[in-house]
């Protein structure tokens, strides 16, 4: 649906300083109908990428291509995109309803369609009750909900959200994630940036990870996790077995736990031998698990390498 091809962008911070490269030959693709998380630490270049994608800033080199399904001209492409910026600000003297109607009118859709979408997404985002209040009286969470609603006012086929979950309480985060999944079920493409990996892991089937403006990973979330499996088991047993365990060759590490227990780690290949030893010694096994890193561990451990 969207293809970043070797995109480079630099900013001149000061006249006498060298330009700072923010996006460095960044390439990735966004597949139609998917829900894709855009991950990277603060300052990695996520917002810059989104602004380049939407035409707010120019790029130094490379290209950003949009599929024909989005439209032939850039104006047509924009009419099919719903965008929600990071920390949005709204005209405080308007009511939420007036704000949505204004943006809907700019989108060129009928009043009836605007009303239908306000009703549908206002209820899903739990903001309908406040739409007749002035925006200046809204809390941060309410502003986030209004911003999300305004991005959906014209039933866009591509929804781009920049840190949509920041500033929301757990209930709000859950509601937003539900709406993102609902949008995806309706066949819309969702692309959202976050630096909180757990949010992305929970709902995104695809991932784009960038580090210091460079491409780090793009593809299925499950593939990244599969590739990152440590092929290791860990077991927790009483520390009375410590001396016996130290004699077994297959054990990689032994760690003392706080509650009179020890955690031992061994390779997947030695699983059978370990279980035989447990049975022979009549060891009471407290815990046995396959050591799989979380997405957060995979991304930030790998990013720091």
């Amino acid at each position: 649906m969207i293809h970043f091809n070797e995109v480079t962008k630099s900013f001149q911070e000061d006249f006498w300083k060298k330009p700072k490269i923010v996006l460095d030959r960044l390439s990735f693709s966004l597949e139609e109908g998917t829900i894709t998380g855009f991950l990277g630490a603060n300052g990695a270049g996520k917002t810059t990428s989104i602004k380049a994608l939407l035409g707010f800033i120019s790029i130094d080199s490379g290209s950003i291509n949009y599929s024909e399904a989005l439209g032939a001209s850039f104006k047509e492409v924009r009419s099919k995109i719903g965008y929600f910026p990071e920390s949005p600000y709204f005209y405080p003297y308007l009511t939420g309803m007036e704000f949505c109607q204004y943006l809907g009118a700019l989108q060129g859709i009928s009043k009836n369609d605007i009303e239908i979408n306000i009703k549908k997404w206002g209820e899903a985002l739990n903001i309908s009750y406040a739409l007749h209040k002035k925006v200046r009286s809204y809390s941060k969470g309410m502003l986030q909900r209004l911003g999300f609603l305004s991005a959906l006012i014209h039933s866009p086929s591509l929804i781009i959200l920049d840190e949509p979950l920041s500033g929301l309480d757990p209930i709000g985060r859950k509601e937003f994630k539900d709406v993102l999944q609902l949008l995806n079920k309706e066949g819309r493409t969702v692309f959202f940036s976050s630096h909180i990996v757990s949010d992305v892991e929970e709902i995104c089937e695809n991932l784009v990870v960038i580090k210091e403006g460079k491409h780090f990973y793009s593809g299925k979330t499950s593939t990244l996790l599969e590739e990152s499996k440590k092929s290791e088991f860990s077991a927790v047993v009483s520390d009375s077995y410590k001396s016996a365990i130290s004699k077994i060759d297959l054990i990689k590490t032994v760690e003392n736990q706080s509650n009179g227990m020890i955690r031992i780690r061994f390779s997947n290949n030695h699983h059978g031998e370990f279980m035989k030893w447990v049975q022979d010694q009549k060891v009471s096994l407290i815990e046995l698990k396959s050591e799989n890193p979380t997405l957060e561990e995979v991304i930030y451990d790998s990013s720091s390498r």
Partner: peptide, 14 residues
């Protein structure tokens, strides 16, 4: 500064 123009210019508005 207030980022209100992003909400407008992302739409089919020149």
């Amino acid at each position: 500064e207030n980022r209100t123009l992003y909400m407008v210019l992302v739409r089919p508005v020149a």
